[in-house]
Simulated assay, not measured.
Amino acid sequence: MSAVPAAPPPASADGARAPLPTPPRDRAGWRVLPARIVAMCAVELQKLRHDRTELYTRAIQPALWLLIFGETFTRIRAIPTGGVPYIDYLAPGIIAQSAMFIAIFYGIQIIWERDSGVLTKLLVTPTPRAALVTGKAFAAGIKALIQAVVVIVIAALLGVAMTWNPLRLLGVAAAVIFGSAFFACLSVTIAGIVLTRDRLMGIGQAITMPLFFGSNALYPVAVMPDWLRAVSAVNPLSYQVDALRGLLLGTPAHLPLDFAVLVLAAGAGITAASSLLGRLAR
């Protein structure tokens, strides 16, 4: 049998042939990338709709730090804070601490996605690896931002004198998100090296407290020994705390330097995590 010829395109009212439809043109990469980052971030945040237990349980630890540690050291005045009540001085450090604790174990979720086959499916999509990592990193930042709101509310109830200037609060949100993005990418990078949840859990627990105590979250840099000052100078958490303290309390801060370090650290973290993401799926 001979093949049935294709029907000719319909003619217009004046007898001329109508032009054939043309397929939509692909959007340029610089337009697709932000949309895919937002999509990955939205997918991560959808998980909060099904289980909010993590947000509730993680609010307990910062509340205890403020209620017990902050109130006690405010009374004994053992740490010089330049005339600022210690609980006020401590509150930005606890915001940064709680945000870091959320992000630093984000690599466990990546390993779980590897074990369940989700990561392999994501890697075969046209979405660049940098977009996958960036979406997950900023989802961690938004989760940390929710935690920061909880800590700010607790601090306000305890009488901490904080600013409510919308522009300063926007800067607080940016500092929390960029800092959390770095620590989430650090966790994913470690996951790409160690490859197992047990090893990542052990390393995460081993580095969280040194990062916290090796920063200016609990005490000023001026009272640190020289070797700890050197650790604080290369610790991104110190710059995050400095920015939060300057924005929330109005204390002297180095905001341009703080945000430059946080943005560069987040960018370096995304680059490192993206380069090791494929190793997890092997």
Rank of each mutant, 00 (worst) to 15 (best):
R129T: 05
I37T: 14
T271R: 15
P236D: 07
G15W: 07
I95L: 12
L145M: 06
Y89M: 10
I104T: 08
A42K: 14
T251I: 08
L55G: 07
L119W: 13
I154N: 04
R58A: 12
G204C: 11
P252F: 12
A137M: 00
I60V: 14
T72L: 15
A217H: 07
V234E: 05
G107Q: 00
T120K: 04
W65G: 11
A3V: 08
Q46F: 06
P8N: 06
L264K: 01
G93T: 07
I102D: 13
P225H: 10
P8Q: 15
L264F: 02
D51I: 02
V38A: 15
I111A: 04
V221I: 10
L20R: 15
V32Y: 13
H254Q: 14
G117L: 02
D115R: 14
M100N: 04
L67A: 15
S180D: 05
I154M: 13
P24I: 07
I60P: 00
N235W: 09
Y239M: 00
G202K: 00
L66I: 05
L248D: 00
A181E: 01
V118E: 06
R17Y: 12
P220F: 06
L218N: 01
R229E: 12
A137H: 01
A144C: 08
M100C: 08
I37H: 06
T196A: 12
M40W: 09
A184L: 12
L170F: 08
G214I: 00
V4T: 15
P92K: 14
A268C: 13
Y86P: 00
T72C: 08
Y56A: 04
A140E: 09
P256K: 01
D242G: 12
P5A: 12
F101G: 05
T125G: 09
R75S: 12
L158T: 04
S180L: 07
S116L: 05
T22R: 15
V118G: 00
R31I: 06
L64D: 01
M1P: 01
V194Q: 04
G15E: 11
D51Y: 03
K136Y: 02
A206M: 14
Q205E: 09
S215K: 02
L248C: 05
V263L: 15
I94S: 02
A103G: 11
F259H: 06
G269R: 13
K136M: 01
A266S: 13
L211V: 12
